[in-house]
Design a protein around this nucleic acid. Structure first.
Lengths: 344, 344
DNA sequence: CTGAAAGCGCTAACAA
DNA sequence: TTGTTAGCGCTTTCAG
């Protein structure tokens, strides 16, 4: 079955006009008589004519669509960021095409290339946890495809980037644990390739050092799939608490990672409750027990900002060469899980 | 800035071949000499040629893309369903374009029409809570655009539909509360327009009647925005518990609605804990306190099934006239929130 | 004020 | 085996 819609030609035939006249009438061109215009407009309305954007794109070499590549929409941070993206795109007249990499570099590549060849006007990208080398994006960028990175960014490409202040977020979270009397703070994080991993790790490390606590590699665990596979996280936690250097608190970096870790700890660890805080944008943190302390990213605003910058590039007459990296502040939401029980 | 890519013409020019020869060589047509083929393929590879899908679509009148319209991706049910959709679409060679209506009929209409005019090969739709009259979808469907409904469906259009067994899910949940000793069970649900609302309400009502409890309108609350606006839910809950017919348990129908309601009840209701159960697909129900009893929908499978049916229509040679409505079973996950404390 | 024709990138029927 | 040409739906010179 093919889905046939009305074309400008059909209108022309019906009204005994040339396609160009119809086209002009439809776009309200001044050179068409009011009479003809009215005729065409009314008929078009009647048969519910819609211009074919595919034909349009072919001609104009633009689609008024922007592509989004994220790892997973079932992630509070990303679904909120996407809402921010849509809010801006919508009233700038762009449509948004969302794709997921599921943390796979292969999948990311396919998506990026498909979106590009499909003629999106620009790309909003947050890298997968496997993506270290990103030649396939660089190539497109060099050919002139506007790209803005958000959240998980890369040095490899010079363009606008929008991120949360991950360094400070991690720093403050760690410091908060230290102030609360925790001394052996483990850090469970995502793939070491990711920019957010590095930024958060640095914040964590610097906070420790500032307070005279030695940084200890044995307290770090990398979960390359970012919590998508719970085994990965279970292993990390198990190995942390098995060792002799058993931590007294855990700080997690990553939305899924945080809730998954919290769940595991809760299940295995009922008595000796370790302190807990993590990056997450869930709205349900209050409902947990103990309620979940969190570092919250301004996801919606990150999405908005990235989109504004992208549209700016797309609509710029001349090649943009002056790029910036915007950093938005995180929010530290202290709840029960990061507060020592004994420390009343 | 415009993003220019290599065309078949460029290749032809460089190799002194006609565009059609190049085209055929690229598609491996049998009528091209091995030599020429090799030449073209190698050159195309070298300059990283990608066919322009826009031009292709214009010609073939198909895009190998399917459009998805849901109310909100920041909803566990939908993000899981989308993963199901993608899993099938991906290995059938279709791309997936996701859009959100944010429970607005206006937005839904815009999205549907855009996707259609953009030439998706088919549509997977779950209606917004405002959508009662859906002429704009009907029109497209009558013109031959393949459409499959899932979750929130409509009688207005005859096509394949995929849903959870909402009636039974609600029935069993209600019965479970009754068995647990609850007698005044309130039902907080979404817009009365939605199919899921009606199905679940019927299940609730029938369970009550089966157990000799009179159905009482005063215990029903409709939240038209499905929990998107928390005030709406606050009002509903407040008015329920203010009245003289104060409920002893609450049963919610809707993913967001369930978590939002639970939060409100938890905050306001610490002592006289009412029983609680609701439809939701969150993975975090275990972490709540009390842990959250839930009716879980097979979201992933619903997405998969809907996509299979859609692809079937798209690829069918002759118009499909024999439609079915598939119903998949829900899962009752009993945890603490629906169990009477005193009833130990 | 309106029409004819070219062209966007690609495929396919028809010629050679 | 390869080239020429028309056409997918639309806009836009260029001519009337």
């Amino acid at each position: 079955m093919k889905f046939d819609s009305v074309t400008i030609k059909d209108i022309g035939k019906a009204l005994n006009l040339s396609t160009s006249t119809v086209s002009r009438a439809l776009r309200g061109s001044y050179e068409i008589s009011a009479e003809t215009k009215k005729l065409v407009l009314e008929y078009a309305e009647k048969i519910n004519y819609r211009p074919n954007p595919i034909a349009l794109s072919l001609k104009e070499r633009r689609t008024r669509a922007i592509g989004v590549v994220v790892s997973e929409i079932a992630n509070n941070f990303f679904s909120q960021a996407i809402n921010g993206i849509e809010s801006i795109a919508y009233n700038r007249g762009y449509h948004v095409i969302i794709t997921q990499s599921h943390e796979s570099q292969e999948r990311e590549k396919v998506n990026v290339q498909h979106l590009a060849s499909r003629g999106v006007d620009g790309l909003l990208v947050s890298l997968s946890s496997e993506s270290e080398e990103i030649e396939y994006i660089k190539e497109l960028h060099e050919k002139g495809l506007p790209i803005v990175f958000f959240d998980r960014i890369s040095d490899e490409i010079e363009t606008h980037k929008v991120i949360a202040n991950n360094y400070l977020g991690a720093y403050h979270a760690t410091e908060h644990l230290i102030y609360g009397g925790f001394k052996k703070i483990a850090h469970v994080t995502s793939s070491p390739y990711l920019s957010i991993t590095k930024e958060r790790l640095n914040g964590y490390r610097d906070a420790l050092e500032k307070h005279g606590i030695a940084y200890n590699d044995a307290l770090i665990r990398y979960c390359n799939r970012g919590g998508m596979i719970s085994e990965e996280v279970e292993d990390a936690i198990a190995s942390l608490f098995k060792g002799k250097a058993k931590p007294d608190a855990v700080f997690t970096a990553g939305d899924r990672l945080t809730t998954v870790c919290y769940g595991i700890l809760k299940r295995m660890n009922q008595k000796k409750e370790a302190g807990f805080i993590g990056f997450t944008n869930t709205n349900l943190a209050d409902l947990f027990s103990p309620s979940l302390s969190a570092i919250r990213q301004p996801a919606f605003e990150i999405g908005q900002t990235a989109t504004e910058l992208l549209v700016q590039i797309i609509e710029s007459k001349r090649p943009v060469t002056d790029f910036e990296t915007r950093q938005l502040d995180t929010q530290l939401m202290i709840r029960e899980s990061s507060v020592k029980k004994s420390a009343t």
